[in-house]
Design a protein around this nucleic acid. Structure first.
Lengths: 217, 217, 217, 217
DNA sequence: GATGAATGAGTCTTCATTCAT
DNA sequence: CATGAATGAAGACTCATTCAT
């Protein structure tokens, strides 16, 4: 179901492939963060990974493969950590905690998120969908979280709004990463979480609107 | 005050410089949108602009100058159009209209916003501040809009929150551009405006909270 | 009719393109002769041609283009010189002179012929036909020469044999080039011409055979 | 006398060396035929031979060794089969049969001959003589065949011409291989043999000439 | 003896930039 | 001012060869 886009490796030993790719990804993330994908050379990546250019190419076919591997891996990490979120409760408190949890992850993975965020668009047209799907899956997790609250009667929110809310939460998490230059000057991650949660929740709290193109109340 | 970073041109005729740069920017935006800054060559830009590579370099010094010119120009356009916003009223309704207005601009300038959004990070460290400052200016416009409401008593919102709210609005505008792939499938710009406004306003409406890690009050 | 396979050049000036390509071909032939196509680098070709690697690529797209250009040019030279052959007479003497003329050309163009002979097979599948067609054209010239004699009653030869004879003549010309290592030790070009002509003619002279698999008289 | 150029093998077991090299040569011929020596990688050869790249290098020292081994082996095969020719008779008929026999071999070994033909020139200067010597040996076999006829009085041919005739026969055999693209369209191997024999023999039959640049007698 | 992962020199090709006309 | 030919540094990728297991 979660069909991955396979990246060809000449080396057969699966365990070795995983190990080397891990080294590679670590090195690449550091470099991409500093100079971006295009300004980073494959040689630099190889040497940051601790092996030769020849070895690098035993584990990938093209430079773009590295980018895909990097993005894919970051998404996986984020998603995996997100799985730790308690999605079963269906209480406002658990939603709040979920958001805080996610924002914290985004804070801890700042570099990775920034890199991924800035470089996904460099992915080839054929790799992009795989990554985008993962993003939607994550948005979906927040959607579930919110709907669970609604089913539980803890929340009264137009169903059209649920999806948007999930998107907003997701983007606000990323925003902490990609607008660091502005946000970090004013707030700590704790403050950011607190304020954003307030802003989000004070609205969710049962305010009713008439849906439609442009009007409420 | 608005010290611009000057881009050197060999040509003296100011009017001509502006004309040529305009052609150049138009061509570059189209190309950057399709292939990104790094995958676009200076020759392509020159030819899209309608002149030779030699001529191109009469009006810029390096390829990065073009990127700066492009970003700068897009920000200027957005800001100029944003000036049309009525910021004096200080009513919730005018805030709402302001947001709708801004989102509409973002929709109309989709391509430009997308380009700018994806490529600012490619700007050299010395050009970035100039562009970032413009972004903050725009955020500032929303801040003013919101504070005007508060001064008017139309809004009761923690002053810490005002700045964040302004950022959120700004990002949500961009979001319509850079998350097109997901959002466009579900909503028209009108729906997007309506829903986001609802979500924003229903929260602004005076909800007070005590919960939170780094809570206030 | 003689549709050439176009090799793309970035430079527009047709005269310049011809001049540069000529330099390029000269340099390439010398190098190919010494080291073969595959062992010659594009840099070497550029520098043998008297310009930089960047300039080289203004006049071709890939290294294979050079090979095609080289082969094509050599064939053209041979064919052009071959046009000087008097094909109208239809006498045995003129046939003899034609052969001598061709063998002399092969001798003078030794290097080129050797190169071409050894490297055509490296041409890409799409370039090969263009070159092969030229070879057949030249074979055709000998065929004409022979048939003219027959029409004139100077020669009595089975029409099946005419084509083969033309091929043989053509190959024997090349043979002087590609078997230099053996032939040169024993004969001068004049001797080679004389002996081969004898061998050829003593057979043409009206000997009759019953066609079929293996038997005559 | 037939000093072979030794190719170093790390493996001691002579029988194994021969077996492995045989596998190697078979694989290499198939690949060289399709892509040529230079475009074939050692890995491909190893895998076509059925073993690993590491193993390959246990039986050779450099890639060129493979080429030498391949050429050497092909020449050996041709020569071995040529030994089957009856060289003792000294009759025109046996000469004719010898030629037919040789052409048939060339037909059956088309691929090998083509490969060898196209790639000998890639042999290093130090390997070439060994291979060329074999070629001359084969030419020598035809020379013997012809001279036997002359001694027998079956043939009256200038002794200068004998050597050339032998060369011609040899080249015409190869020609059936390397000009397949043109010849196969028109003749079967039987027809080719028949016509070439006719052409050859009708000339040998005692024609005397005085004309020619470097004429004899 | 066999394996295949590691190596890095070497190759083709691109492209920003210059400068003579 | 405009042009476009020339330049060469730099980058992606390959592949023959080695060597530890």
């Amino acid at each position: 179901m979660n069909k991955k886009r396979e990246v060809h490796a000449s080396v057969k030993d699966e365990r070795l492939v995983m190990k080397r790719r891990d080294q590679m990804i670590r090195g690449a993330v550091a470099l991409f963060k500093k100079k971006g994908f295009h300004r980073t050379t494959t040689r630099e990546i190889a040497s940051a990974a601790g092996f030769s250019i020849g070895t690098l190419y035993e584990y990938i076919r093209t430079k773009e493969d590295i980018l895909y591997l990097v993005c894919d891996s970051i998404y996986d990490q984020v998603r995996d950590r997100l799985q730790g979120m308690d999605t079963s409760q269906g209480t406002l408190e658990s939603l709040r905690l979920g958001i805080a949890y996610y924002f914290k992850i985004m804070d801890e993975m700042q570099d990775e998120v920034l890199v991924m965020y800035q470089e996904v668009k460099s992915l080839t047209k054929d790799a992009l969908p795989y990554v985008l799907k993962k993003e939607l899956e994550m948005v979906g997790m927040f959607e579930t979280l919110i709907m669970r609250c609604q089913e539980n009667g803890e929340l009264d929110i137009d169903s059209h709004h649920v999806h948007m809310l999930a998107h907003n939460i997701f983007v606000q998490g990323q925003m902490w990463g990609f607008r660091r230059w502005a946000l970090r000057k004013q707030w700590t991650i704790e403050e950011y979480i607190s304020i954003q949660t307030d802003l989000l929740f004070s609205g969710i709290k049962g305010y009713k609107t008439t849906v439609g193109t442009g009007g409420e109340r």
